[in-house]
Design a binder for these strands. Sequence first.
DNA 1: CATGAATGAGTCTTCATTCAT
DNA 2: TATGAATGAAGACTCATTCAT
Lengths: 207, 207, 207, 207
Amino acid sequence: MTEKTRRRRDPEERRAEILAAAFALFSERGFAATRIEDVAARAGIAKGTVYLHFPDKEALFTSLASGMASPLLARMAEMANNDRIPPKSVIAGLYAMADSEILGTDRRHMLRLLISEGQFFPVVAEFYHRNVLSVGLALLRRVLERAAERGELRNPKVAEVPQLVFAPVLMSIIWKSLFEPYEHLDTKTVFATFLETLFLPSEGEAS
Amino acid sequence: MTEKTRRRRDPEERRAEILAAAFALFSERGFAATRIEDVAARAGIAKGTVYLHFPDKEALFTSLASGMASPLLARMAEMANNDRIPPKSVIAGLYAMADSEILGTDRRHMLRLLISEGQFFPVVAEFYHRNVLSVGLALLRRVLERAAERGELRNPKVAEVPQLVFAPVLMSIIWKSLFEPYEHLDTKTVFATFLETLFLPSEGEAS
Amino acid sequence: MTEKTRRRRDPEERRAEILAAAFALFSERGFAATRIEDVAARAGIAKGTVYLHFPDKEALFTSLASGMASPLLARMAEMANNDRIPPKSVIAGLYAMADSEILGTDRRHMLRLLISEGQFFPVVAEFYHRNVLSVGLALLRRVLERAAERGELRNPKVAEVPQLVFAPVLMSIIWKSLFEPYEHLDTKTVFATFLETLFLPSEGEAS
Amino acid sequence: MTEKTRRRRDPEERRAEILAAAFALFSERGFAATRIEDVAARAGIAKGTVYLHFPDKEALFTSLASGMASPLLARMAEMANNDRIPPKSVIAGLYAMADSEILGTDRRHMLRLLISEGQFFPVVAEFYHRNVLSVGLALLRRVLERAAERGELRNPKVAEVPQLVFAPVLMSIIWKSLFEPYEHLDTKTVFATFLETLFLPSEGEAS
DNA sequence: CATGAATGAGTCTTCATTCAT
DNA sequence: TATGAATGAAGACTCATTCAT
């Protein structure tokens, strides 16, 4: 009875396990170099079983990519929409979150993967634009406009190019992926410096 | 006359043609999805001929990657080392160059490719770190320090994190690759805004 | 009914079928000239299936070579170890067995293949030395020493060079492979004559 | 003038150089694994030049095989036809020659190659049968018959199976090729022992 | 549902042979 | 004659996908 307890799990759970395995392998080796068989092995199931949950290899990638963003985005939105938090603190919080939740985890590999493969998966790119970027940029724009109104931005025009806010995040992901072995990048300093470049010092802060 | 002049070209020229073909296809489809046979076809030669010039597919990529950076870097260095040009103009010039020479051309695809595949080609990553990044960052640091001394930076600490300078370039490349079809990004505005965020307005400039 | 029973056979059986196909083709054409695809076709399976059972072409050869010797060797050992059989009869029996079981069958092709390719498959050569030759020579030496003690050998020193015993077998294999179409070799006479050269006539035998 | 002395050599000499190179490489690696380009390189010429002297790779092999036997055979014939030399000495001389001229040199590789590939080159096999084996066996038969008449053979019937005489030579070639690294074979002892098995001790010889 | 043996299209790479120079 | 760049057929091996069990 304990023998075959592994079979016939909850479908949703099984699906999640497969995605987790795919995530690990895509992160490590990239899309092309990951074999379905390895994903299956890592998920502890047989090759064919993967196909019971996903029509093909691409679906594995698109599912993964789509499912990855939402949780984090929600938390970010929550923070950004809280008008009682000062804009600078919001952005600081977002950077802290990016640092610990993305750069500090395997998620950064997935983001790199998105950067790498996204172009060849229009479904994914469009999904991200619609559900992540549009939303995220709107949030940022709102926060930055609030900051501009309060006279906290060194250059108020930044509010019109909110993409600049996540440029350092992308740069850090790329650096970590490619060059960290050769030269360490201290992302906390990156974000802190950038924050101080965007925002004037708060009152009571030493320059 | 041009018909059968195909045989026995200058080796250097032939090599360049192959690289050009590989560049086009890698840019368009990525490394894994490009077949040597397609590279050959595009170069107007037979499959086997590619192997007379490059030992394998990887070599094609590494050659390409290595050969791509130097020319541009040299021009950038020249500009950055000219102390008679004010720092802000130097950075403005670099952004202009990035905009026209990278973002405005196919080279941006190659850069994306580097971001994507670099991790799996340590030779390339190390080459870039040593020959491009180290050099480029040193240049930027020098320019930024000069700016700091002259009191032109909004946040002098930026001189210690010169990577921030090219963060918007990377962001733009990624945006163009993935999201441009869905939402246009005006890179000139991106760079202009960022420049104004880094630097205080010059005298005589309107904010 | 036999039509589509092709899928999912007993792995051991499938393995044996592949080896049988490989045996036939290697025998006929040699190692280099045999294509995996042909082996598959002959076994009635797809190319890829071969690779489910053997890691590569070499493994096919080494498996084949290794698996080929034991059965016969065992029977020979049994005969040679039976001290109640007079030495001359033992050797006669071995020759009879070689004649009918090797020279008279496709196995002789395999032996030729071993002679041909063995040098390039050290694994195989060592395997044969350890498991076939060492054992076989020890047996022969024992039999010959017994014969020498009983004064049955024309030249007792032969016991010290038991390799001489199988020299005619190798010669016959080579002859059959290369020259039989041009000139028949009667192996029974070869072995009989050699036997009479090694051994003195038994009592009661006419010279 | 010394510059291009290498070009335009005597065709016969050039041909010989190519054959020598082919011999070395075929011996070392076998027929399939030897590339024409390597033969050319070893002969110090360009790939295409080989084709000015031999129509294809096979011709290289057949030429080589055909040209290899004659010189040695001639010397053997000379010895065998000298009726003043006692038969036993003739055979002893032949073994000595085989030992020093074949087993002791690279020629043994070529003989192994003949054994290996001969089957797939009927031209070669037939050539050898007609020009080497027929001749050689006739010589041996004659010598053995002379020995039989003189009552020097332990088993006079050997004269009817002269192939037995070269069986130990083949065995030694095969042993050296495959098993020498694992166990040394002393060919002098092999031949001496076999000689004493074929022939009765000469008068004045100790057994 | 789950399995994993089987499939075969797809790709890299090699190398005998040709032929313009 | 000699060269060696160019060719392209050939073959080993991979892996996404299917499907009988």
